[in-house]
Design a protein around this nucleic acid. Sequence first.
DNA 1: TCAAAAGTGTTGTCGCTACACCCATGC
DNA 2: GCATGGGTGTAGCGACAACACTTTTGA
Lengths: 235, 235
Amino acid sequence: MTRYTGESRMLVAVDCIIFGFDGTDIKLLLIQRGLKPEKGKWSLMGGFLQENESLEQAANRVLKKLTGLEGVYMEQMKAYGEPLRDPVERVLSIAYFALIDIHQYEKQLSTEYHAEWVHIKKLPELIFDHKKMVENAKKQLRYKAALHPILFELLPAKFTIPQLQILYEGIYDTTFDNRNFSRKVLSTELLIKQKEKDKANSKKGAFYYKLDKRKYKANFQAFLNFIPNPDKLLL
Amino acid sequence: MTRYTGESRMLVAVDCIIFGFDGTDIKLLLIQRGLKPEKGKWSLMGGFLQENESLEQAANRVLKKLTGLEGVYMEQMKAYGEPLRDPVERVLSIAYFALIDIHQYEKQLSTEYHAEWVHIKKLPELIFDHKKMVENAKKQLRYKAALHPILFELLPAKFTIPQLQILYEGIYDTTFDNRNFSRKVLSTELLIKQKEKDKANSKKGAFYYKLDKRKYKANFQAFLNFIPNPDKLLL
DNA sequence: TCAAAAGTGTTGTCGCTACACCCATGC
DNA sequence: GCATGGGTGTAGCGACAACACTTTTGA
């Protein structure tokens, strides 16, 4: 026996929802689609699953092709399979979301794809069901970040607590008490205080911290309850 | 333009991890595979995605074909795409997990598939990567049930708090203080007390409760924190 | 009357929010 | 010295785990 008979085969794609944080705003990396149809319209970066690669490999390949980055935090989100989601022919899409340190990739935007970082609250129209994918990704990111120390992936290796707070406030579209926030974050003991301060944003300056990689990996699955009143914030 | 060119198409399947609870044990509904290869070996129920159906439709079709049930709680879990996961040819599988009230479907096990309810801790060897799917499903169920009132889906319309507790204890493979458990559950205000008692398990008898469907739907996304020390329990 | 499960009451602890207040520095 | 963020101290409240104790009923 060599193949299953009487069943229909279809294309499979991976699409990447790529989040970045520039210190102020949360952004998504979008491209202008190079293929017909909808050529030139805004789209998530994606690609077809090749014959000998796994889904994870495909997602990483697609991300690397656009950004040049490897070893980025990525997570499989959801499969989208409406029969008519792509008007050309049936394409099943597996969506991944990625969190990248925008400073590692801000300038050298591949001109090949006309990629741009777009403010998450000012997204253009997107092709196919990509808008829905983005909405699901935002929701999942909020959900996950309420419980797990995932947002560090968006920051550079050295960062300050106020920077981290701005990031969390952006994700949850709210404000937190800075005094309680810093205490809560420090109480996780995931951060290692550095000697230097960042004086860009205040006269006193805020100490830099680095992530304790070992503890981060060990405690990743723990429920950390970063966010006050998660019930209310998560819709 | 009618099709994308130069890309490879493949089969897509859905596989269902079907959980049930018989009042004492948590079980999985497995079948004995009817197709070659691995014919006769234990497997999850699955089926190929048809040309004009969505993933959800396919999952529901597969579930109905085996159990006759519709409107069952189902959730998309994860896509599995290792190139060689099926030795016959490349098949991408989207796994769904389902929670069903075992009493609605215990006797009329379809002889067509040689289906059986198998104790979750005594699973046989499974074909392909189905073992991994089951493990992921267990983990996701634990995770989700720690925060959301999802396990009611496994119980009949009327149930007692001690029954619910046995279910939770089975899921988390631990024991809870019955006094605190009942208070915690009742504090959610999701349950409506009935007049009758279940006297099968004690002389005093335990009151039956029904789920307040309206509140259940409204509060489903809230973080309910059903479980003490979720950190420690979830691995 | 006693065994056994169901369920209520109570207490101490812990973690959280809210907010007063101090700190370091550039101007 | 004063404005501006950064950060610590503290008090009150609420949630929760632990566990004593009462209730109900069959045998």
